[in-house]
């Protein structure tokens, strides 16, 4: 029996792991791939304090992992297939067997949202991408469309100008949602063409992307934009398949917690991108990871 199982090794999970290891809780961290999560999709992190020149997503995660392991956190590569969560008992079913724990912290994060339009699924791997740092270099001197308008979308549009001849930023409103500094940067780039008030309706191509059909939401006018790649950054869906029907979720499917990261089931906590909240950042994830462990300690104390 473990004191604590943490599911997911991104910034929230690794911080929880660090605090749990230092609290000497009998802790096991489970990750289905190797540590990282969404951060690894980021080329350069420049809004996480302590790194005035910025730091690569990979280096940041590597430092977080090493810091937690320095205090003897055990990270196992196991995929969770089922969770049985009740106030009395928490069972984690993995590909390697059943594990029982007194407390659980869910830090399994979120996954990029798809557009859900025709041609998208078919052309994944053939020009449709959700990771600019991974796939940007395949588009040297080509034209690409990028869908979105938040921080991630604008950051990635700027990143893609290193490779692509032209980046068409397709945004459904007449103003970007991204933070002011990023808006200023992207507006100053000649290589970026912002297409306002517009949504994609279809990604065109058979064996590779040839273009994207667009619709202006104000005028209703449709058009076709020939591009070789389509990058999609339209938010995230939480990785909550394992807890649906067991924990209270908000209307978008994120896990509802109180201020102490406690979910609707006593002894089950959540932190990071999976949580229902207003801001999903590395800086918010780490604070929640630490808080969750403090709440776990109090919970374990109450069981005695």
């Amino acid at each position: 029996m473990e004191d604590l199982i943490i599911i997911g090794a991104g910034p929230a999970g690794l911080t929880a792991g660090l605090y749990a290891a230092r609290a000497r809780l009998k802790t096991l961290m489970l990750e289905k791939l190797s540590p990282g999560g969404q951060v690894l999709m980021t080329d350069w992190v420049e809004n996480y304090p302590g790194f005035p020149d910025g730091i690569s997503g990979f280096d940041l995660i590597d430092k977080m992992r090493r810091q937690a392991e320095k205090f003897d956190l055990v990270i196992e590569s196991q995929e969770v297939s089922r969770l049985e969560l009740s106030p009395e008992k928490k069972v984690v079913v993995t590909d390697k067997g059943n594990l029982e724990t007194r407390a659980l912290i869910l830090t399994s994060g979120a996954t990029p949202r798809k557009l859900g339009i025709e041609g998208e699924e078919l052309l994944i791997g053939k020009g449709v991408s959700y990771c600019a740092t991974c796939d940007g270099p395949f588009y040297r001197d080509q034209e690409v469309a990028l869908i979105g308008g938040g921080d991630t979308a604008v950051e990635e549009a700027i990143f893609l100008t290193r490779f692509a001849a032209k980046v068409h930023l397709i945004h459904r409103r007449d103003e970007l949602r991204a933070t002011k500094l990023l808006r200023e940067r992207v507006m100053a780039l000649d290589q970026v063409n912002i297409v306002w008030d517009t949504v994609p309706t279809r990604i065109v191509g058979d064996t590779e992307v040839q273009g994207v059909d667009l619709k202006n939401v104000k005028t209703g006018k449709t058009s076709h934009l020939p591009v070789q790649g389509v990058f999609v950054f339209v938010g995230y869906i939480p990785n909550t398949e394992l807890v649906k029907g067991q924990l209270e979720l908000d209307k978008l499917g994120f896990v509802v917690t109180n201020n102490d990261m406690q979910t609707s089931v006593p002894g089950v906590f959540a932190a990071g991108d999976i949580r229902s909240k207003i801001l999903r950042q590395i800086a918010t994830a780490v604070g929640e990871g630490a808080t969750a462990v403090f709440a776990v300690e109090r919970y374990l104390e109450s069981l005695k």
């Binding site: 791939l33 190797s34 540590p35 990282g36 951060v39 690894l40 999709m41 980021t42 080329d43 997503g57 990979f58 590569s77 990771c131 740092t133 991974c134 270099p137």
Partner: peptide, 11 residues
């Protein structure tokens, strides 16, 4: 340059 690749390589 690919972060997610590094999550896959240990697997």
């Amino acid at each position: 340059w690919c972060g997610p690749c590094k999550m896959v390589s240990p697997v």
